[in-house]
Design a protein around this nucleic acid. Structure first.
Length: 635
RNA sequence: GCCCACGUAGCUCAGCAGGUAGAGCACUUCCUUGGUAAGGAAGAGGUCACCGGUUCGAAUCCGGUCGUGGGCUCCA
């Protein structure tokens, strides 16, 4: 059979099954050698057979797909190195990931740091061998036999679940792996890579399966990019909120209290309160009503709400008081619902928006706890909106508008937005779901947010929108979530009186914009690297004296600033100026006011900014500048 | 929860062929009054996470518990 491949207007006729690498001799790629091709949109490496006609695109290293191919090949090299050094290790899977690659191995004894170094060394040798990665296609049965003979039971298991009659293998030297490809032409092209860590991982992510050892690594086309990546890892370590949280005295987690429970120290607490003040002010401005609710409730409440059915494993165990069982709240919704239910509601009141900084407790498995980002007690910036179906789009739009506003103020300008649609198991009618999904979509489009659809990823009670924010290091964090709920109004038999003088069922929206104050704070610490913008900074101004005789004037400056609500820290200690400057700098205080003979005499201030610049201002000018900067929430 | 690693002064870490604890920073006191990222001296501070075992003797070896970290899974 003949096929036709076109590239930049040129067309060539080939015998089906010819290796794609042949095209290197047919077309002119501007003197460059592609790593692979894209034919009709899917990737082919140079050793893949051409079996269909179509448009050809070359893939060069700068192509986003190219890095994945490289990393996938790096994973194979890793596997080859491990098999050479530890022939008893059985292979799991080894894909490329966002940041690099990994390969899973089943081996009795764990890989040590030294093993990792030895493996990396062997990988370098394999790279030097410049082994071609050859693609072979064989029948599934043949492949099963092949891997069974080699004792690769996991590969056999994978093959059992593949429905294709023919499968592809990739061979590099003596190493053969079941793999769809594509791969680089030869191992010599993997020039910059590094193994990073070993961790346990369940076979196929299921904890009932055996646990394999996963070796993580990363790879790039050149050393420079690898170096940059490793520096970014280093920067992330420097910004780690757990480290900064301790160094800047923001928060702590104490063994005596228990894992996943946060102590907000004075400096962290003031940041939190600033966020909360801003949050509340903005909510009140936008038609929300503030409520407060208890931390525990009768177990029956959680039975009615359904949490005992679908959320029990995340709830703290019940406690008995006066022969009745109570449970800590994992969510705030039932309380808000009971406020709604406290009297008859009319459509004229709609939409009703209750907001609360509600502290909830969720049982999280010990292994998942992580600093402020994953805890067992946290405060959600929660709200529940009750409205009619025809108000849904407008309400979602308003929520989106609010969340984008908040995030922008904190300096997050880039988001990933996901719309999760109806899952297999769901409550309510398909019709209601479709309407709601349509409303969410319309609101997203009206707000001008581009989004991806997560089909079937909605919660059983309604569709949702999740937002992930991108921090300065390019990492994404989920904070905001907006969920429509068809279920809980039903369970609590909510109603409102419509214009037709008949009761109707309202729709409810759950939403948290910052997510939890704990997580958001953690993300903020890392985003700002601990250097909070002035309006959030725990200490906004440090006043440093050069010598003891400058103290009276310095004290006056402190009083001036404090009287205007500026958070000031005097440093009149008998230390040298350099020492005090360094200390204030380490604490990441935005402004240092330096008071010496010159300042006292001229009644002007020398102000050192966090970035190390010096300004000369009168006390009044400085106060005004500070107040303006606080008010504008300048980043 | 599971796998692996780790747990020594407030912090960062050294000590570990088993002989009973050390540094730097921070803290306190004294000297120094010094102009933009660490002046000098002295001092105080540890049941070596906890419990048990081996041993004449354990921070060091073994077991268990708790906690932390990297992952798996889940999510704010």
């Amino acid at each position: 059979m003949k096929i036709r491949v076109t590239f930049e207007g040129q067309e060539v006729e080939l015998e089906s099954g010819v290796q794609a690498g042949y095209l290197l001799e047919v077309f002119d790629f501007g003197g460059r050698r592609p790593l692979a091709f894209r034919l009709n949109g899917h990737l082919l490496d140079l050793h893949s057979p051409l079996t269909e006609s179509g448009q050809l695109e070359p893939v060069f290293p700068e192509d986003p797909e190219a890095l994945k191919i490289l990393r996938h090949t790096a994973a194979h090299i890793l596997a080859q190195a491990v098999k050479e050094l530890f022939p008893e290790a059985r292979l799991g899977i080894g894909p490329a990931t966002e940041e690099g690659f990994y390969y899973d191995f089943d081996r009795q004894s764990p890989f040590t740091e030294e093993d990792l170094a030895a493996i990396e060394k062997r990988m370098k040798e394999i790279v030097k061998r410049r082994l071609p990665l050859k693609r072979e296609e064989i029948s599934r049965e043949e492949a099963q036999r092949f891997f069974a003979e080699r004792g690769e039971t996991y590969k056999v298991e994978l093959l059992r679940e593949i429905s294709d009659e023919r499968v592809s293998l990739y061979r590099q030297g003596d190493f053969v792996d079941l793999c769809r490809g594509p791969h680089l032409p030869h191992t010599g092209m993997v020039k910059a890579f590094k193994l990073l860590s070993v961790a346990g991982a369940y076979w196929r992510g299921d904890e009932r399966n055996p646990q394999l050892q996963r070796i993580y690594g990363t790879a790039f086309f050149d050393q420079e990019a690898l170096k940059e990546y490793l520096e970014r890892l280093e920067e992330a370590r420097r910004r780690d909120h757990r480290r900064l949280g301790r160094e800047l005295e923001l928060f702590s987690i104490e063994e005596e209290i228990g894992p996943g429970l946060i102590l907000w120290h004075p400096k962290g607490a003031i940041v939190r309160r600033e966020i909360e003040n801003f949050w509340l002010e903005e909510h009140l401005r936008r038609g929300y009503q503030l409520v407060f609710t208890p931390h525990i409730a009768l177990r029956d409440l959680w039975r009615i709400s359904g949490h005992l059915d679908f959320y029990a494993e995340n709830m703290f165990a019940p406690m008995e008081i006066d022969e009745r069982a109570y449970q800590l709240k994992p969510m705030n919704c039932p309380f808000h619902i009971l406020i709604y239910k406290s009297r008859k509601r009319s459509y004229r009141e709609f939409p009703i928006r209750y907001c609360e900084l509600g502290t909830v407790y969720r049982y999280e498995r010990s292994g998942v706890l992580h600093g402020l980002l994953r805890v067992r007690g946290f405060t959600q910036d929660d709200a529940h909106i009750f409205c009619r179906e025809d108000q849904l789009e407008e309400e979602i739009f308003r929520v989106l508008d609010l969340v984008v506003y908040f995030l922008t103020v904190f300096g997050f300008e880039e988001y990933q937005v996901y719309l999760s649609t109806r899952p297999e198991k769901f409550v309510g009618s398909e019709e209601v779901w479709e309407k709601a999904e349509g409303a969410l979509r319309a609101a997203l489009e009206r707000k001008g947010l581009s989004y991806a659809i997560d089909p079937g990823e909605g919660v059983f009670y309604g569709p949702k929108i999740d937002l992930k924010i991108r921090d300065v290091l390019g990492r994404f964090w989920q904070c905001s979530t907006i969920q429509v709920d068809f279920n809980i109004p039903e369970r609590f038999d909510l109603s409102y009186m419509g214009p037709d003088n008949r009761p109707h069922r309202p729709i409810m929206i759950h939403r948290a914009l910052l997510g939890s104050l704990e997580r958001f704070f953690g993300v903020l610490i890392e985003h700002y690297a601990g250097a909070f913008p002035l309006w959030l900074a725990p200490i906004q101004v440090a006043v440093l004296t050069v010598a003891d005789r400058h103290e009276p004037f310095a004290r006056k400056i402190c009083e001036l600033l404090e009287a205007s609500g500026v958070r000031v820290e005097p440093d009149f200690r008998g230390e040298r100026l350099g020492y005090k400057v360094r200390e204030a700098q380490v604490k990441k205080i935005p402004y240092m006011v330096i008071v010496g003979d010159r300042e006292v005499q001229e009644e002007r201030l020398t102000v050192r900014t966090r970035s190390g610049e010096n300004l000369s201002l009168s006390p009044e000018e400085f106060l005004e500048k500070v107040q303006e900067e606080i008010k504008s929430k300048k980043i």
